[in-house]
């Protein structure tokens, strides 16, 4: 579905006279392949290049060296751009700054309108998309009156109405409260499961990555770790090297394990922790 081949992208900072002050390699020789239907979380500290990575997937940025292919199409060919953007939709960070129209329904229609979808089909697409994110009742309302989580779901519907194969969440939960974050993450999982949409979730909340099929960790423009949550989070020392944290319960289990307690080195969540405690007790290893 998505293939990065030795992609390089640099930001050049210039001073007032236009002289080069410094160069940041936001993507440094990145090669990765993401399969259709995968749920991939991309983790990394601020400035690790994860947002730049996201913007390459729908052609907002094009690599300076190497290639990026989406659905087999080369993003550096301008003729492919509209098709790529339809296939790989994006949901951004700030809920207010990505809603264009004055009613929910018209905003969802914005993408299909740009694609030239015939009017008869448009209403159906819009209704279906709003139905999927559970906001059909807000159809005629102003987006300004919605909560942060709801606004992000409108943005998701806006992408869905374009019938994408992949949705990229570029830190879409960073500005939301815990309830809003849950809404967005749950929606992402539903679309992945029920509609076989490939999800790329860029986030710095470790917990949100726990439900992913696969995690990519980025640091200084490189993909430094690539594996299942189990593989990634059972290496807390390495994770911390990249200025990230391990979810607290996972960390607790790991430390207990290292201290010789009857605990596995990795537990995914609260339930697994309880499970481990119970089996330790059954084995008589726990008082």
């Amino acid at each position: 579905m998505i293939r990065f081949e030795n992609a390089v992208f640099e930001y050049i900072r210039r001073d007032d006279e236009g002289n080069v002050e410094g160069i940041t390699r936001a993507l440094d020789d990145v090669s990765v392949h993401i399969k259709r239907g995968e749920f991939v979380a991309v983790l990394g500290a601020n400035g690790s290049g994860k947002s730049t990575f996201a913007k390459h997937i729908n052609g907002l940025l094009v690599p300076e060296e190497g290639k990026v292919f989406v659905g087999g199409l080369d993003t550096s060919d301008d003729n492919n751009l509209l098709k790529i953007r339809q296939m790989a939709g994006m949901v951004f960070q700030n809920p207010d700054n990505q809603i264009i129209a004055q009613t929910v329904e018209e905003d969802v229609a914005f993408g299909p309108e740009n694609m030239g979808v015939p009017t008869d089909e448009m209403q159906q697409r819009v209704d279906e998309a709003l139905e999927k994110v559970g906001l059909i009742a807000e159809k005629d309302n102003s987006p300004n009156r919605l909560s942060g989580g709801q606004k992000q779901r409108v943005a998701i519907a806006g992408v869905l109405a374009m019938k994408p194969e992949c949705i990229i969440f570029d830190e879409s939960t960073a500005m939301l409260d815990p309830a809003g974050r849950k809404e967005v993450i749950a929606t992402a999982h539903e679309l992945n499961k029920n509609n076989n949409i490939t999800v790329i979730l860029i986030t710095h909340y470790m917990n949100e990555a726990m439900g992913a099929d696969r995690i990519l960790v980025m640091d200084h423009g490189k993909i430094v770790m690539d594996g299942t949550p189990r593989q990634i989070f059972s290496k807390p020392e390495e994770i911390r090297k990249y200025k990230l944290e391990v979810p607290e319960i996972t960390e607790l289990a790991y430390r207990l394990h290292k201290a010789g307690a009857p605990m596995p080195a990795f537990v995914l969540d609260e339930d697994e922790f309880m499970e481990a405690i119970r089996s330790a007790k059954a084995a008589g290893a726990l008082s």
């Binding site: 994006m90 700054n97 990505q98 914005f110 993408g111 740009n114 030239g116």
Partner: peptide, 27 residues
């Protein structure tokens, strides 16, 4: 300006390319 930048990017990501070939939800 920050909002304008964000919005322009969001519009571009949703295939906005001017009025050419554009249809309407409520013509």
């Amino acid at each position: 300006f920050r909002r304008a930048g964000d919005l322009a990017q969001a519009m571009e990501a949703r295939c906005y390319h001017g009025g050419k070939g554009r249809t309407k939800l409520h013509p």
